[in-house]
């Protein structure tokens, strides 16, 4: 922790970055995002198992981008990112939303984060993305902290649910998602917390013509949730923030994870893993698997 704070302080004091986006402790088992611009405030920065937020979402926020541009030069933004959040940063770079040289990535050796705030981090309270996580070390970073530790063991219930849904008939599957989407209240928290939902103007906000009905009845809810799943296919890095943010507990990661599995099987592509690879939707190869076409 001390090294992290010192590093952040140094970055700000030397004027290398305009802000450090990080976590601060709220209570014993809860953190919240913080944007530090004053070197004095760096002593609030923390990193632990309760750093649930994916801070990559702040990198494309217009206000923050503007505030990091001074008169004569563009300053970097420093972001504290778990190894899985680095995937989101990479995906944003791949999609030309940010430049690698504008971002200073502070990362950690990670052994998982809690599923919920306020409860002890353990095999019973571990985020489902962490259970079979393969990147305990970040793939890209400018500075790394933390020691390697063992991830608590837990069973991958979400994977079992995906397989369960795959075994369902079309009708059953439709009913399952109908019941889930029925709960949607269209608060768009899933969109707001998603680092890859960076559109300045989302398709749901377009009114002439209105592609997606803003009413949260079945048709509107299906349209929204399916369109979002489509837009994230081959792009979602699986940070699980949408599911965590959802006030009505729609299991959004089931959809997103299923799409990611499909992308991997069909195109051997996993989002946000390499700066050298072009994006899945942005590249074409004549040998591409075309089984998906109707």
């Amino acid at each position: 922790m001390k090294e992290l704070r010192e590093h952040a302080k140094e970055l700000l004091e030397k004027g290398e970055v305009s802000a450090v986006i990080g976590y601060s402790q709220v209570s014993e088992k809860r953190t919240k995002p913080i944007i530090v611009t004053d070197p004095q405030d760096t002593d609030q920065l923390v990193f632990n198992e309760y750093c649930l937020n994916n801070l990559a979402v702040y990198l494309t926020k217009a206000r923050i981008k503007v505030s990091c541009r001074t008169k004569d030069k563009t300053l970097k933004l420093a972001v504290t990112a778990k190894p899985c959040d680095v995937h989101s940063v990479v995906a944003l770079i791949q999609e030309n939303q940010i430049h690698r040289e504008d971002i200073h990535i502070i990362s950690f050796n990670c052994h998982g984060v809690a599923k919920d705030f306020g409860f002890e981090f353990s095999g019973d309270n571990i985020a489902s993305k962490c259970i079979n996580c393969e990147t305990h070390k970040p793939l890209y970073f400018d500075k790394i902290f933390g020691e390697e530790k063992e991830t608590p063991k837990a069973s991958d219930d979400a994977m079992e649910r995906i397989q369960e849904i795959e075994r369902m008939s079309h009708q059953e599957r439709f009913e399952f998602f109908k019941n889930e989407f029925d709960k949607c209240i269209k608060c768009y928290a899933c969109r707001a917390v998603c680092p890859l939902c960076y559109c300045q103007r989302c398709i749901t906000d377009k009114t002439i013509p209105r592609w997606i009905e803003s009413s949260s009845h079945m048709r509107g809810n299906f349209a929204w949730n399916i369109v979002r799943a489509f837009h994230l296919s081959g792009r979602c890095t699986g940070c699980g923030e949408c599911e965590r943010a959802c006030p009505v507990d729609i299991p959004l990661s089931l959809l997103n994870r299923r799409m990611a599995i499909k992308a991997k099987k069909s195109f051997s592509y996993v989002s946000g893993r390499s700066l050298e690879t072009p994006t899945l939707v942005g590249s074409f190869n004549e040998k591409d698997n075309d089984e998906l076409f109707m």
Binding site: R63, K186, C187, Y188, R191, A192, A245
Partner: peptide, 16 residues
């Protein structure tokens, strides 16, 4: 301004 920089503009607070 400080709060505005952190808030992600969803309507979860209003809807709950």
């Amino acid at each position: 301004e400080g709060i505005g920089n952190l808030c992600l503009s969803c309507a979860k607070c209003a809807f709950v």
